[in-house]
Each structure stands twice: as structure tokens, then as C-alpha cells.
């Protein structure tokens, strides 16, 4: 893949690192139908793991109830020098990950 599916922004504020991320993904629930009336198979991210220096700080288990191109935001107690790594996996076995230093764009 030429372009990463993950956009990751991190910011340090008073000892807390705020992590914001956008992932490009269709997030089909498996309930919708296309114009012909056939079901669009379920295709959604079911696991997002965010690690700081290799230690997981947040794990999200998602279902189709999360919107298309999902957004996630949270914060944790960390340091400016931390390296953040976000990995997602979907129900068809696809995955992607991105690693970044805090504050870097």
C-alpha cells in the first residue's frame, strides 16, 4: 500500500499524551444491502491496539457499529520521548500499523 490507512496525531500536555487517530476503512456491518439487494459482507476493524514504547496503553475491540473511517481519541500518562504504535486488524484478516514519535507529524 502506497499510502498508510492510518493518520496519527499525538500531543503532550502536562504529562498526558493525547492520541488521536483516523483510520481509513469501509466498516461494513454486514447488514446493509447494495442496489441489487445482495448483502454487503461484513468488513470492519475488530481490534485496534495502541502501544507506547511497546507497552499497550489502549486496546479497542470494535464491531460494525463504529462509523466508516473510524476516529479514536484518548490520552495516557506518558513522556515526550515515547514512540506510539497503532495497529489495526479487521475481520477479513487485513491489518496495518504505523509508528510515530510523540509530537511528530
Amino acid at each position: 500500500m502506497a499510502k498508510s490507512t492510518i493518520k496519527l496525531r499525538t500531543k503532550e500536555k502536562k504529562g498526558l499524551i493525547q492520541v488521536k487517530s483516523l483510520i481509513t476503512h469501509p466498516m461494513h456491518t454486514g447488514l446493509r444491502r447494495n442496489k441489487k439487494g445482495d448483502k454487503i459482507p461484513a468488513h470492519f476493524i475488530n481490534e485496534v491496539v495502541v502501544e507506547a514504547n511497546g507497552e499497550p496503553v489502549m486496546t479497542a475491540n470494535w464491531t460494525g457499529a463504529i462509523s466508516k473511517n473510524p476516529f479514536i481519541s484518548f490520552s495516557y500518562a506518558g513522556d515526550k520521548s515515547d514512540t506510539i504504535k497503532l495497529t489495526w486488524k479487521d475481520n477479513t484478516g487485513k491489518s496495518d500499523s504505523l509508528e510515530k514519535q510523540v509530537g511528530k507529524k
Binding site: L16, A52, E55, P56, V57, M58, T59, A60, N61, W62, T63, A65, I66, F74, S75, Y76, A77, G78
Partner: peptide
């Protein structure tokens, strides 16, 4: 959705 918060996480 289910979020598991790590030791340092808020």
C-alpha cells in the same frame, strides 16, 4: 465497542 485501558491509560 470495548476499550481496554492499559495501566498508564486514562
Amino acid at each position: 465497542a470495548r476499550y481496554t485501558v492499559g495501566a498508564k491509560g486514562k
